[in-house]
Amino acid sequence: MLQETIQFGPVLLKVSWLIIFFSLLCAYAVMIIYLRKDETLLNELSSILGNSFLLYIVIFKFSFLFFRPSMLLHNWKGILFFTGGTKGAIIGFVISLLYITFQLYKRRLFMRKVLFALLYGGMTAVITESIWIFVFR
């Protein structure tokens, strides 16, 4: 049975977050391998994906201000601890996808090679996470 959290001193990390992070690293490695011959394309795609990941984290973290702004008035230190929950994760995911699409369109990167790299990376992330959950649960 897989534990829910791992404790590093005073810090608790959810195992599901570690699984997602590991699957995203595997997906990125597959994209690097697929685009290894075209370094400029890899750098642009890495920049877009990195920015979209940071955008997702910020939206997920601060979306509770949109759903329940009164919590900030009652407990202003709670901004460090609260997250947007499932609604915030969905909104962050949708906005990140829109950002990726907009940037690919703006930089004219809707090429077969980029789309296949994103497809291979996405499938790798899904398969990696599924295998991890299947094996350890």
Rank of each mutant, 00 (worst) to 15 (best):
28 Y>P: 02
104 L>A: 00
110 F>R: 07
93 F>T: 14
41 L>E: 14
67 F>A: 09
137 R>K: 13
41 L>V: 14
48 I>V: 08
55 L>C: 02
43 N>L: 11
110 F>C: 05
42 L>Y: 11
71 M>F: 15
44 E>S: 14
84 G>K: 07
86 T>W: 13
15 V>C: 00
137 R>M: 02
51 N>S: 00
95 I>P: 06
18 L>D: 01
96 S>R: 01
104 L>P: 12
45 L>T: 08
112 R>S: 12
24 L>C: 05
124 T>V: 13
107 R>S: 07
106 K>N: 06
91 I>P: 06
6 I>F: 02
46 S>N: 13
46 S>R: 11
119 L>V: 07
41 L>T: 15
65 L>Y: 02
67 F>R: 12
3 Q>S: 01
110 F>Y: 07
42 L>N: 05
127 I>N: 12
107 R>K: 15
88 G>M: 01
75 N>F: 07
12 L>W: 09
105 Y>C: 01
124 T>Y: 08
4 E>P: 06
47 S>D: 13
60 F>E: 00
108 R>F: 03
38 D>P: 09
107 R>A: 07
68 R>E: 09
93 F>A: 12
81 F>E: 13
22 F>T: 14
87 K>L: 09
92 G>A: 03
98 L>N: 05
90 I>D: 06
78 G>Q: 05
127 I>K: 13
24 L>F: 05
49 L>M: 06
119 L>M: 12
84 G>N: 05
116 F>L: 12
20 I>W: 06
92 G>F: 03
76 W>T: 12
135 V>A: 09
9 G>N: 12
98 L>R: 08
77 K>P: 08
27 A>Q: 04
2 L>Y: 04
18 L>E: 04
13 L>I: 10
86 T>K: 14
7 Q>S: 07
105 Y>I: 10
124 T>P: 10
94 V>S: 11
130 S>P: 10
43 N>Y: 13
103 Q>A: 02
24 L>S: 04
4 E>F: 04
96 S>W: 01
32 I>M: 08
112 R>V: 04
82 F>N: 09
109 L>Q: 11
103 Q>R: 10
117 A>I: 09
29 A>H: 06
122 G>P: 09
120 Y>H: 08
39 E>K: 15
79 I>R: 10
62 F>C: 02
124 T>A: 12
100 I>K: 04
115 L>N: 07
89 A>K: 06
60 F>M: 03
7 Q>D: 00
37 K>F: 03
106 K>R: 15
22 F>R: 06
88 G>N: 04
15 V>F: 02
130 S>A: 15
80 L>D: 04
29 A>T: 04
94 V>T: 14
49 L>H: 00
128 T>P: 13
50 G>P: 00
